[in-house]
């Protein structure tokens, strides 16, 4: 469940865990009380009801406590978001073009691929553009998503700390083959990546990566 691999995934997962625990607590509390009351104050056991109109102290309590909790949640999310928005200046920048129904990636030296290859432990920035309708660039394992629009630029960045290949999905409905607009982002060792990107080869050989993946599957 918490298997994110980008520099953002840990804090997003933490935020999620926090809200999940708080939510689970309130859900269980409400459900438990509901069931307990239904049994305890069943008309057979408790034939005469007691009218209680209100209790201002109680109302204030259950307004204030959730308010504080949601403000904490808000702050956690906002903190994560600010990090995602601050694209480092020296990030390695790749142009991403979305169209119905595929992705194209263009590296700084002009090389183009249809799978995204990135170096590990490096700040990578993506310039996102669409040439037809709206799409969204989504890498679940990175906990990142950004909508892509025609005639408008979007930017996102990440730093992946783990070798491997991860799914890219289109998350904004874009017509017939929306669900087939899948691709992979392959995180490679730095030296291998730069050797490949500066070479004539169309695709990198993924020797080290294959071993890494084998190791992963053994774990």
């Amino acid at each position: 469940m918490f298997d994110g691999v980008s520099n953002f995934s840990q804090s997003t997962d933490f935020t999620f865990l926090f809200t999940l625990i708080v939510s689970a607590f309130f859900l269980l509390l409400v459900t438990f009380l509901m069931i307990y009351f239904v049994f305890k104050y069943n008309k057979k056991r408790n034939p005469v009801a007691k009218n209680i109109h209100h209790n201002t102290a109680l109302e204030i309590t259950w307004t204030a406590i959730p308010l504080i909790l949601v403000l904490i949640m808000f702050w956690l999310g906002w903190r994560d978001y600010l990090k995602q928005e601050a694209v480092p200046d020296n990030a390695y920048t790749i142009d991403v073009t979305a169209q119905m129904w595929l992705w194209k990636f263009k590296y700084p030296n002009g090389k183009e691929t249809d799978t995204l290859y990135v170096p590990v432990n490096t700040d990578v920035a993506l310039n996102l553009k669409s040439i037809d309708v709206n799409h969204a660039f989504y890498v679940p394992k990175f906990r990142l998503k950004k909508d892509v629009y025609p005639n408008q630029n979007r930017k996102m960045w990440f730093n992946s700390s783990e070798l491997g290949s991860f799914d890219i999905a289109c998350a904004e409905y874009c017509g017939l083959n929306h669900s087939y607009m899948y691709n992979k982002v392959v995180v490679m060792p730095k030296d291998e990546f730069f050797a490949w990107v500066n070479s004539e080869d169309k695709y990198p050989t993924l020797k080290q990566l294959a071993e890494q993946n084998l190791e992963n599957s053994r774990n």
Binding site: T19, V30, M34, V38, G77, Y81
Partner: peptide, 29 residues
């Protein structure tokens, strides 16, 4: 009673989506 149970789940997961970083991950899923 089912309403209260389910609405509580719906409401709490709604709060989760109000949290920016969580929404960025789960939006449109």
């Amino acid at each position: 009673l089912a309403f209260i149970f389910q609405f509580t789940i719906g409401g709490l997961t709604g709060v989760m989506q109000g949290v920016l970083s969580i929404d960025i991950h789960v939006h449109d899923t």
